[in-house]
Write a protein that binds this DNA or RNA. Structure first.
Lengths: 212, 212
DNA sequence: ACCTAAATCAAACATTCGTTTGATTTTCAT
DNA sequence: ATGAAAATCAAACGAATGTTTGATTTAGGT
């Protein structure tokens, strides 16, 4: 699907407000006001509020799919280097899409209804899982990594840690006495710390034999 | 605050519905219907929908505060044993309060407004941080743990992993081919795996010197 | 049995919600 | 310049929202 400049503007505003106040907590009038368009333009362009968030998901998830597939092309690297690149790239991707990640976190919590949005999320999770599985299996078959690695929990730690860092970033700032940092300064600080932390955790997890 | 049986019933229903559909996505009529009371009883007992969720937080957070403080009394254990007990107890506490944790995750995402609810969350986070800081510092001063441990990121990995496991448990089930497990069976399976996984991660993190 | 306070109820309240309508303006190829 | 399509608008729509009202029932102490 192609979107006009005005449609992209509405989607951007919707993303901002949904991430701040949630989907149900944001009215189409809120969006229209911030986007400086008439209320009816949202139905006119997207059909409904539900279709608007579907458009947002289609747009953002298509974007990030490209970034994931890029990693599969890596060659001439050790298994650990590939895993490290995967971690770096995941941290960058999620932190750079903070607002959309917040929306996704909320959507993951709302079980029950199987919507188009939940389909998007599931497809993306499958892709992420397959990437990690491929990287780790490669390392195991090459004799580098240990055998009994719990890939699904390792994946949950990767995404859970980054998501939780996003969700509690204000508290993280106060804990580390870095309230003075600007948004962009803090974001690169957090990326750096997260990458180091997660790579260190993963390194132990794929090499050490300290499971019971 | 003391609550009558009927009030506790309303709170329990509200917790269930808030966790499934979110605060804004749940109407007081939904709650009244499931709790089998008249709509006006919610205002009558709690004052408002906002006050209702505040009551829920007061109740649940007071409960869990007791479980946290219990750990501080531990003695005659190695630093690593204490950390392991803290992890076990955190996994149990969060998984056993799955519904409330979902509500908390959503509330953490809604920045902006500083409500009574966000005050509860912040206080609880401070307590959690102080507990972890104490346990780790103890281990460092005893010469067991290494010096440069990033406690705040370690804490984010602990809670982030458990939270993400709760949020994506359906996908985790399909990934591991355990859709046939009952709710309770799955919950104890997940607890077991999470404890093993997190204790292994923490053990490497506090001992190994593989940071850059 | 009586009385008061608590509990319960159906109904109404004023807002806000997402969406539609129908008229008007803008755009742009011809 | 003209005309048809696209874009924009204020206004209205019905449904749903949280809350209040005022009457009625229930409960429990005296």
């Amino acid at each position: 699907m192609e979107y006009s400049a005005k449609q992209l503007q509405i989607i951007a505003v919707a993303e901002k407000l949904f991430s701040k106040k949630g989907f149900e907590g944001t009215s189409v009038r809120d969006i229209a006001e911030v986007a400086e368009v008439n209320v009816s333009m949202i139905s006119y362009y997207f059909g409904s509020k539900d279709k608007l968030i579907e458009a947002l998901f289609e747009l953002r998830i298509t974007e990030s799919r490209l970034r994931i597939e890029h990693i599969l092309l890596l060659e001439d690297l050790t298994p650990l280097q590939k895993v490290n690149i995967m971690i770096d790239s995941t941290v960058d991707r999620l932190i750079d899409n903070e607002q959309f990640q917040k929306i996704m976190m909320r959507e993951q919590l709302s079980s029950e209804r199987t919507t188009i949005v939940s389909k998007y999320i599931r497809d993306m999770k499958i892709r992420n899982s397959e990437l990690m599985k491929r990287l780790i299996t490669e390392g195991q078959e090459a004799g580098y990594f240990r055998k009994n690695i719990d890939m699904s929990l390792l994946s949950i730690t990767l995404y859970g840690t980054i998501h939780h860092a996003i969700a509690t970033q204000d508290y993280y700032k106060t804990l580390n006495n870095i309230e003075h940092l600007s948004g962009e300064e803090f974001r690169s600080f957090l990326k750096m710390r997260l990458k180091r932390h997660l790579k260190s955790l993963f390194k132990s997890a794929v090499f050490n034999e300290n499971h019971t």
